[in-house]
Write a protein that binds this DNA or RNA. Structure first.
Lengths: 148, 148
DNA sequence: TTTATGTAGTTGCATAAACAACTATATGCC
DNA sequence: GGCATATAGTTGTTTATGCAACTACATAAA
């Protein structure tokens, strides 16, 4: 393990993920200031449904890297907010397909604009080349660890 | 904003922090397998106390990027586990100084070893140069956003 | 057809986070 | 000294996560 010694120094910031916490908080704050009353966790589910609605809860688990109970409850809360609807699949009665309401569809544009704006605040002073490498590293880390 | 268009592509992975979630889960799993019965959040507080004990709760807030209620409750739980003790400051009676118990001191070596091992699992296949750049980017993001 | 096994989703419980409201102590100014 | 203001920490409420245990349905083999 040749890199071992080198790497020991600053494991803390990697493990605790202060940067992503900071981005999440800032996005939440920007949502609030614009009168958008959803959590970032709820937004992260909507994000995948905007790309493709009618996904099963299991598909949302895989897409958002959450376990099944987490998605059950996020969908519960999104349903209470009248942003999504559970529709039982006709082919497989175990499955709920999740569909967006009109209200949720209307949230897409504004919230994606806020997300982009937040990301630009976050990455101010960072070059595209650096961003690319950071993305690669984070992706590799995720790939290395995603399998339980 | 010349980089705007470029950056829009993959905001999602940045914002949701799947990589740091994955590291945190893996470390938690490695703790459990070694019979270490603490959460990563508790570990992150102990981490700063191992470097310097007798810090105030406010100092721990700053160090761990958490708000005061979060630290109050983490210290509550660490106290229940008999890993730390609150000692009222004699100079300023508003302040609690947090000290480690013998049990907590004994946890340091094993848990840091597991943290290093987890980080090496996470960074397998990533070069030192890439890690350095990723660290810089994450640090810049944190600096850009840390002020509420 | 029955039985075993796997998959989708839910519920209970403990821990943690964000935010607002609160208490107690300290500090600085009149 | 007395009052305003700031700081340290706590408590309540809502939302979210991780894990284990559970129900319901599907599939494949005996």
């Amino acid at each position: 393990m040749p890199n071992n010694q080198f790497r020991k120094g600053e494991l803390y910031s990697f493990i605790t993920g202060k940067a992503s916490t900071a981005i999440a908080r800032r996005l939440q704050k920007n949502f609030k200031q614009s009168g958008l009353d959803i959590t970032i966790e709820q937004w992260s589910v909507l994000y995948h449904l905007w790309k493709q609605e009618g996904q099963s809860q299991q598909q949302l688990c895989d897409a958002t890297f959450r376990d099944k109970p987490s998605i059950t409850r996020l969908v519960d809360n999104l349903e209470k907010l009248k942003l999504v609807k559970r529709v039982p699949s006709k082919e497989d009665r175990r499955i709920n397909l999740i569909y967006l309401t009109k209200e949720a569809i209307q949230l897409q544009e504004k919230s994606m604009e806020l997300a982009n704006q937040t990301l630009n605040e976050a990455l101010s002073g960072v070059t595209n080349g650096q961003v690319e490498i950071a993305k690669e590293v984070l992706h590799t880390v995720y790939e290395n660890l995603k399998t339980l």
